[in-house]
């Protein structure tokens, strides 16, 4: 047991020393140039909203300095937060995939609320169905809901296109929804939840507003439980 911890410890130390070796060989100027390139790269790539892979960062930006990855990514993370108000998050621990999220909920120029983008209204419809159903919805339930408003996922929709593909691939990859198997369900069943990006960048209150609009309901507080949830979420927010 003692030996094992010792081994782990020394391994860790080794990586650290390899890293600092890379950094020691670089001048402060070189280091800051790499961090600048890295930040620029992350900003550009984040426009697609897709996860950014560590291997791509190494290939495109770091090159032979890849060993200093952890150090450089930490520095970039700090700059992104201090200057740009963006949070760099590793998708899951050790997933080696990163996503850049805004610090600001309901940023009117980042998200769907900005003028009539069809793409965004589809996303908002889907997120609102999930939310209205109690934050999780089975795939069949969601498809029923969509069918009721004229979106049949089995067919190509004339405005929204291939909805199933967007739902299960694009929105999942962009972090708007999570799509997973229901544990223990027989027969196999899948469910949708809000993804990391939706939870971070959208507020439930805004989604509720959106639902109210499409249902022509003036006052979102008619949905008592959702309203309470949304407000509870909103209360401790940034001013």
């Amino acid at each position: 047991m003692a030996d094992e911890t010792q081994l782990m410890f020394s391994q860790e130390e080794q990586t650290v020393s390899k890293q600092s070796k890379v950094l020691c060989q670089l001048s402060a100027e070189e280091i800051s140039k790499i961090v600048v390139d890295l930040v620029r790269y992350l900003l550009i790539m984040s426009q697609k909203k897709l996860p950014i892979k560590r291997s791509d960062i190494n290939k495109t930006v770091l090159g032979d300095k890849s060993r200093g990855f952890d150090h450089f990514i930490e520095m970039a993370k700090e700059r992104l937060s201090l200057v740009f108000g963006m949070e760099l998050i590793e998708l899951e621990l050790n997933s080696k995939s990163y996503i850049l999220l805004s610090e600001f909920q309901d940023h009117p120029y980042l998200n769907c609320y900005s003028a009539g983008k069809t793409e965004c209204s589809l996303l908002m419809i889907i997120l609102s169905f999930i939310f209205m159903n109690g934050n999780v919805i089975s795939d069949n339930q969601l498809y029923d809901c969509l069918r009721r408003i004229g979106i049949d996922i089995e067919f190509h929709h004339e405005v929204f296109g291939d909805v199933e593909n967007k739902l299960k691939k694009d929105y999942v990859r962009q972090g708007y929804v999570e799509y997973s198997r229901v544990v223990g369900a027989e027969p196999v069943q899948h469910e949708f939840k809000w993804g990391l990006r939706a939870r971070k960048e959208l507020s439930k209150l805004k989604v509720l507003d959106f639902v109210a609009k499409i249902y022509g309901e003036e006052d979102p507080s008619n949905w008592t439980s959702q309203w309470e949830q949304a407000n509870a979420e909103n209360a401790p927010n940034e001013s």
Partner: peptide, 18 residues
Amino acid sequence: MALEKAHKFFLQAFIANG
């Protein structure tokens, strides 16, 4: 000088729209 939230919010709109 560090940027305030307002600056960052404003800047993000520019990053998204150009």
